[in-house]
């Protein structure tokens, strides 16, 4: 039942335009967050003693970085929502 067939030409054209501004924005913001998350994982796994340092307010880096990841998720989500274009 699953015979092959190529996508219709108009859909090829849609794909050639490839990633829309909304998707491009989403992927860019995802890359920013991924970098932040990988940084956190890297410190925890390979340089965990850094987490004990207290760079700000006497609170250690582990807590500051963890809280920053939570806040960053919300900030990036809000940026995404504000910059997304309406659907065609």
């Amino acid at each position: 039942m699953d015979t092959s067939s190529s996508p219709a030409p108009d859909l090829r054209a849609a794909h050639d335009a490839h990633i829309s501004p909304n998707s491009r924005l989403g992927l860019a913001l995802f890359a920013v967050y991924l970098a932040l998350y990988l940084g956190f994982m890297g410190i925890a796994a390979f340089k965990y003693e850094l987490f004990a340092s207290t760079p700000f307010g006497g609170v250690n880096l582990a807590i500051l970085y963890g809280m920053a990841l939570i806040v960053a998720a919300l900030v990036l989500a809000l940026i995404y929502m504000m910059l997304c274009k309406p659907e065609r």
């Binding site: 996508p7 219709a8 859909l11 849609a14 794909h15 490839h18 829309s20 998707s23």
Partner: peptide
């Protein structure tokens, strides 16, 4: 291969 509408195109909207 895919048939019907193109999912990548749908995803890219």
């Amino acid at each position: 291969r895919r048939r019907g509408h193109d999912v990548v195109a749908v995803a890219a909207r």
